[in-house]
Design a protein around this nucleic acid. Structure first.
Length: 261
DNA sequence: ATGGTAGACCTTCTA
């Protein structure tokens, strides 16, 4: 089963781009981030007509996440547990009813910029809540994958020009440590498991010709439980999507997990 | 050189 993560940077501004990619790549499951709309404005029918079940957790203007699945979904949860006052729509979770079920979490971690504001504290607090929730899900000892835009550059090799990111929330020691702490729970980064080469970026800024200069960063990940990692067969970063008409600044990343019984 | 671009949407915020 092919599971994709993609920060689309407004699903409505980019619907033709999104549907063109879905038809070409044929993922079974998609974790979509930054839909930038409320549930009522999500293009549900257009995506259902491509064969997907749709679950949305949106908000006005900013953030917003969705799950698409060609298999039925159950146990759908919206919002990251741990803070009832948090109104930002950044997390959605469901069990995909494949022959061997897999729990899929789609997440959009806070950016955290600019440094020195409450935004960075919110990022770290959100990361802590994510870690706590992941620990609870890992206790089920079942196939589990947490996919999304983590807004972290884990290592210098995950940026074309690491020096340009030293003052950025995505490359702070605290952000990088929080990401490592997720892995220490017992989650594997599909990119690492597959031995993907340095330079496999997932994001290029719209500004300053970042794409044309390949000034990219790797910030979109699939973290897998051991039960999912045992069934992991491969990963593809769809770099070509950055050259589509009206591209997102992120490209889709797709993992293949064998969930046959 | 502190720029540049994109999206939502009221005018500036977010990334």
């Amino acid at each position: 089963m092919r599971i994709a993560t993609w920060n689309v940077n407004s699903v409505n501004a980019r619907l033709p781009t999104v549907t063109a990619w879905l038809e070409a790549a044929q993922p079974d499951v998609v974790c979509m981030q930054e839909i930038k709309c409320v549930d009522e404005k999500f293009p549900r029918e257009a995506l259902e007509s491509l064969g997907y079940n749709v679950e949305v957790h949106g908000q006005k203007s900013y953030n917003g996440v969705a799950l698409l699945s060609k298999h039925p979904m159950s146990d759908v949860r919206r919002g990251l547990p741990g803070d009832e006052t948090d109104e930002q729509a950044r997390f959605i979770e469901a069990v995909i009813e494949a022959p061997v079920p897999i729990r899929v979490c789609g997440l959009y971690l806070p950016n955290g910029n600019p440094m020195g504001t409450e935004k960075f504290a919110y990022k770290l607090a959100w990361f802590e809540r994510l870690k706590r929730h992941a620990a609870e899900l890992l206790a089920y000892e079942e196939p589990l994958i947490l996919c999304g835009d983590y807004n972290v550059i884990p290592e210098p090799e995950d940026a074309r020009n690491p020096a340009a990111w030293t003052g950025d929330a995505l490359f702070q020691p605290e952000s990088r440590a929080a990401f490592r702490a997720m892995k220490w729970l017992g989650l594997s980064d599909a990119h690492e498991v597959a031995g993907e080469p340095a330079g496999t970026y997932t994001f290029w800024d719209y500004q300053a010709g970042a794409w044309q200069r390949d000034h990219g960063i790797r910030i979109d990940f699939h973290l897998m439980s051991s039960q999912a990692t045992d069934r992991f067969r491969g990963i593809e970063t769809h770099r070509d999507a950055r050259d589509m008409d009206k591209p997102s600044d992120h490209v889709p990343v797709v993992v293949d997990i064998d969930l046959e019984a």
